[in-house]
Design a protein around this nucleic acid. Structure first.
Lengths: 194, 194
DNA sequence: AAGTTTATTGACTCGTCAATCAACAAAAAG
DNA sequence: CTTTTTGTTGATTGACGAGTCAATAAACTT
C-alpha cells in the first residue's frame, strides 16, 4: 500500500536509526539490516533511498552536525553582545542535553573514526571545527587579545576531550558536569576566579 | 626450519604489526591476514599464538599503554620534587614523540572505540585514566588546593582531546605544538603568565 | 483503460574473513 | 632412533553481510 512522498520520511527514519544503532553498538560495525529494521523497513529499501551504507553514515553525520550548528546559532542569537555570555552560550550549547545524549556521543566518536577513512566525513568534521574555532576566536579576541589563538585551540580540544570521556564512562551523561569541567578552564583563563 | 623459542618474538611482531595496521587503516577493520603478513607469517600462525583477533587487539592495547606508563614513570623519576616540574614532565611524556606517532595516535583512537564493546579494553583504559588522574592530583593539590579535582578533570580531558584532534588533522604530528596547547591551560591555571 | 512512476520486499549473488584442521618439519627428550 | 613437543602453513569451513534484481502493488498521468 504505497503512499507517495515517502522519500523524506524514510530517509529521516533511516538517519535517526543509523545514529541510534551506531550509538548502541559503539562502533560502525552495524549492518544495514539492523538499521533498516529499527527504521521499520527492509534493507533493500534502505539501499534504494541511500545508495550505500557509507551514504547513510554521511547523512547521519550531517544531521548531527547540523543539529549542533543550529543549537549554537540559536544560543548565540539569544546571548546578546557580551563576549563572556557568548562564550558560555557556545559551551552550554555544545553540551546541551540535545547533543549530549548517549547515542549521539557514541555516534560522534565513531564519526571521528569514519573521518580517518572517508574523505567526505573528514571534510564535514573540518567544517565543524573551523566554525567552532571562528566562533570562539571572535569573542576571545575581545577578552584575551593575542592569546586568543592558543586559548581557542585549547578550548576546542577540551570540548572534544570531554565528549570522548563521556563516551567511555558508564552511567547517564551529565551535561552540567561537562559544562563545569570546561568552565573551570574558561573562568580561570578569563581571569575571573568564580 | 623452526627455531625454538619463537613465541615471544612472534607475539611481539604481531603486536607491533597490529598497531601499525590499525593506524594505517584508521579503523579496527583490519584482517588477521593483513596483520600476519606485515609481521611476516601466516594468519594461521597468528591464530596459533593469540587465540583470536580480539586477543591481538588487547595485547596491542596493553603494549601501548605500558609504553606510555613507562614513559611517564621515567619522566617523573627524572623530574625531582617540584610539583610544577612534575606536571610538566607528565605532559611532555604524554606527547613525547614515542607515543605521539601517527600510527600510535590512530591506534589509540580506535582503542577508545574498542572499549565501547570489549569489557577488557574498557578496563584497560580506565586503569590508564585513573593512574593519570592520580598522578595529576598529587601535584595539583600542592599547587591549587581544593581546585585540584576540577583542574585534573579538565587536564585529563584536554590531553585526550589533543590526541583526538591529532588523529584527524593531516600532516605529521607535532609534539611541541601539542605540549604548547596544554601548557597554555596549565600555566594560566597555576597563575603564572608566561 | 493503458502506461508510467513510486514504494516495497524476499530471494539471491558474490565476496570476505575468522577460525579450524590436517599435514609437514625440525628440534628435544627418552 | 623413535616419540613428543614446538613451529609452521595451505586449504577449508562456515558465517555473515553489502548490494542487486525480479516481482508485486498502489498511486498518478494521459
Amino acid at each position: 500500500m504505497p503512499k507517495l512522498g515517502m522519500e523524506p520520511i524514510r530517509k529521516a527514519a533511516l538517519v535517526k536509526a543509523t545514529i541510534v544503532e551506531i550509538g548502541r553498538a559503539g562502533s560502525l560495525d552495524v549492518t544495514v539490516s539492523q538499521i533498516a529494521k529499527r527504521a521499520g523497513m527492509s534493507s533493500a529499501l534502505a539501499h534504494h533511498y541511500f545508495g550505500s551504507k557509507e551514504d547513510m553514515f554521511l547523512a547521519a553525520m550531517r544531521h548531527i552536525l547540523s543539529l549542533y550548528g543550529a543549537e549554537v546559532r540559536g544560543a548565540l542569537a539569544a546571548a546578546g553582545d557580551a563576549p563572556e555570555a557568548r562564550l558560555q552560550a557556545i559551551l552550554r550549547a555544545s553540551f546541551s542535553p540535545g547533543n549530549f545524549r548517549r547515542e549521539a556521543v557514541g555516534a560522534w566518536l565513531n564519526f571521528y573514526v569514519l573521518a580517518q577513512t572517508v574523505t567526505e566525513a573528514r571534510r564535514l568534521l573540518s567544517v565543524y571545527q573551523r566554525r567552532l574555532r571562528s566562533n570562539l576566536m571572535s569573542d576571545l579576541r575581545l577578552l584575551v587579545g593575542p592569546r586568543a589563538p592558543a586559548v581557542a585551540a585549547a578550548l576546542g580540544a577540551l570540548i572534544d576531550g570531554v565528549y570522548l570521556r563521556e563516551a567511555l564512562k558508564d552511567g547517564p551523561p551529565d551535561s552540567a558536569a561537562a559544562v563545569a569541567v570546561v568552565m573551570e578552564f574558561l573562568t580561570t583563563e578569563l581571569g575571573k576566579q568564580s
